[in-house]
Design a binder for these strands. Structure first.
Length: 358
DNA sequence: CGAATTTGACCCGCGC
DNA sequence: GCGCGGGTCAAATTCG
């Protein structure tokens, strides 16, 4: 139980911000490509009019573009399925997550409401520390970013030591790790590493406490791009893959070898806001896929969290506020986590909705 | 042969 | 101060 909670919490810890739209987009792309569907969350219960709505040329980027306009009190209230999902890449053998099975337990474990209650972030990373808003805590690293002093001081010394010990990263200290905004989402997939169109290089893997599944760490291979991605499987539901993006790509969206994803990231336009979407055919597929894409059952949860309360609103994706998506998110929908990174804040919302709608 | 992955060790922050 | 867990590094290995 605890574990589950922790998992969720950690996810909640992620920050959803406008600072890393590309990451978000990538996430979205990945999610969608997996059939996981970030968006499957949005539609109304079971209603899959998604194709009509989503069918439009709205791009992921647009959808995901985290803008500052979003001010909706409740993300979910205004959230609806995105227009189109990129065709699932062949490489990913995503299985139709027909029904999300995020553990209800987990969900239940999370407190309540959602709406953007900044302070509620308590549960985050540190269940133990209540007031340390998780948000801040999880992002505490980020928070710490501003304090180079000590770090720098120690830095030199430490470096020496480090060297002596093992020539490991001398730099680390300097930069006192600044955590980029993170964006996490859950997808149901057999494949751990979702193909989001970007090139990733795995640089580490760690066993996850209380989970039989390891966590893999990836870094964008593009030079100068420090975007990282963390992938792990939910211990609760092995079919669920939790992907966390950190940072934003500073380069154009790479051309997908598979050509499965037609995303056109135009660096000049705020990093790929334009998303070229799929062929009509896909739409058809979509319908077929709908069950897991728009399915009312939450097959996927998007969790996003903003590091700062203020950023919260700012970080909300356009699509969330797009009037095109008028239908309230449904139960099934994935939960969008944002906000102080409290998963609970989000999940609850979802749940609430579900309750309502049902 | 270069790129990507694996994997053990180390760093770092945090709670106790 | 110590232990734990998350995150990262980099040498070794594997793959294309």
């Amino acid at each position: 139980m605890e574990k589950k909670k922790e998992n969720l919490i950690s996810m909640a810890n992620l920050r959803f911000s406008d600072e890393n739209p590309s990451a978000v987009a990538a996430a979205a792309a990945a999610a969608t490509s997996f059939g996981g569907s970030i968006f499957d969350m949005a539609t109304g219960a079971g209603a899959c009019d998604g194709d009509t709505k989503w069918g439009s040329s709205l791009g992921f980027m647009d959808l995901l573009g985290i803008h500052q306009d979003f001010i909706a009190p409740s993300l979910f209230d205004s959230f609806q399925p995105p227009p189109i999902l990129p065709p699932p890449p062949p490489s990913t053998s995503s299985e139709p997550l027909l029904h999300q099975q995020l553990d209800t337990k987990q969900l239940q474990a999370l407190p309540s409401p959602a709406s953007i209650v900044p302070e509620s972030s308590e549960v985050l990373n540190n269940p133990a520390t209540p007031n340390s808003s998780s948000f801040s805590s999880s992002s505490n690293e980020a928070a710490n970013d501003h304090e180079p002093t000590k770090a720098e001081d120690d830095e030199e010394e430490e470096q020496d030591q480090d060297k002596t010990k093992k020539q490991l990263k001398p730099k680390k200290k300097n930069q006192k790790r600044q955590r980029e905004p993170r964006f996490a989402f859950m997808t149901k997939s057999e494949v751990d590493h979702l193909d989001d169109g970007y090139r990733w290089r795995k640089y580490g893997q760690k066993a996850v406490k209380n989970s039989p599944f390891p966590r893999s760490y990836y870094r964008c291979t593009s030079a100068g791009c420090g975007v990282k991605k963390r992938v792990e499987r939910s211990s609760d539901d092995p079919s669920i893959v939790v992907t966390t993006y950190e940072g934003q790509h500073k380069h154009p969206y790479p051309i997908t070898p598979r050509g499965s994803i037609g995303i056109n990231m135009d660096p000049s336009s705020s990093f790929g806001r334009s998303f070229v979407v799929p062929q009509p055919q896909y739409l058809h597929q979509q319908q077929q896929l709908q069950p897991y894409i728009y399915n009312s059952s939450p097959s996927l949860n998007i969790t996003s969290i903003t590091s700062s309360g203020s950023s919260f609103n700012a970080s909300i994706p356009d699509f969330l506020q797009d009037r095109r998506f008028n239908t309230p998110p449904t139960s099934s929908s994935a939960s969008l986590l944002r906000d102080h990174g409290l998963l609970q804040d989000i999940v609850p919302t979802q749940m609430r909705k579900e309750a309502k709608e049902q």
